[in-house]
Write a protein that binds this DNA or RNA. Sequence first.
DNA 1: ATCGTTCATCGTCGAATAGCGATGAACGGG
DNA 2: CCCGTTCATCGCTATTCGACGATGAACGAT
Lengths: 112, 112
Amino acid sequence: MPAVKLREPAPLARVPAENEDIALLAKALGHPARVGIVQMLHEKQSCIGCDIVDEIGLAQSTISEHLRILKAAGIITGSIERPRVCYSLNAGALEPLRRFLDDVAKRAAHRQ
Amino acid sequence: MPAVKLREPAPLARVPAENEDIALLAKALGHPARVGIVQMLHEKQSCIGCDIVDEIGLAQSTISEHLRILKAAGIITGSIERPRVCYSLNAGALEPLRRFLDDVAKRAAHRQ
DNA sequence: ATCGTTCATCGTCGAATAGCGATGAACGGG
DNA sequence: CCCGTTCATCGCTATTCGACGATGAACGAT
């Protein structure tokens, strides 16, 4: 045990866990194909199968990867329905990011 | 001039320019340090100089790069004030992303 | 039992990110 | 005129991303 207390490594000062969260959500949306997928799931309420591949116009493996990223971020969920997988939006997951942006917009408008 | 009309390369089917826009904004926010910077500029209304470097806790060159990315996305602006640069938030730039998220949230809540 | 469909995973490639230190430009002040 | 401060830019390295084709797993249908 050292005699002096070393300065805490600090979680990077100004980078609380909440920001980490927001950044992860934003990153997950940080690709046009993924925005398109969310848009699709948002319009066609119904969950979708491989139609996404046709709509977006990328290779199946690529779409699968994008779906994996969205799933990992909690933005979508997939339930198997052999032989397909039925994806649907989990709108609640986006709340932290949405609230962050709302907050910025509101305060900015408020002080004009 | 070929006799037949070739199929248009298509802007990637379902990936309209608007989504591209949203994705670019999201990408710019896709890093905790950048979220922190926006948060800073949002709280301390006043524009900031190099205080950001102290607050975030990354090397000056790294912060400079993050600022460049935010600037490129139109999210912040910087006005020189020798020898410093005064950054401030351009909240309006985030609107497309904010509206997108609001839309998703609203429609999701509506159909419950 | 075989086939077809749907999807995930793997390996690979090039491009982009993220981080740093070092260097350089641009002043305002002594 | 030199100095210090602030910031941008330049290499450079390591890691991650994005895309693809090929392969494989998991069934329903024939």
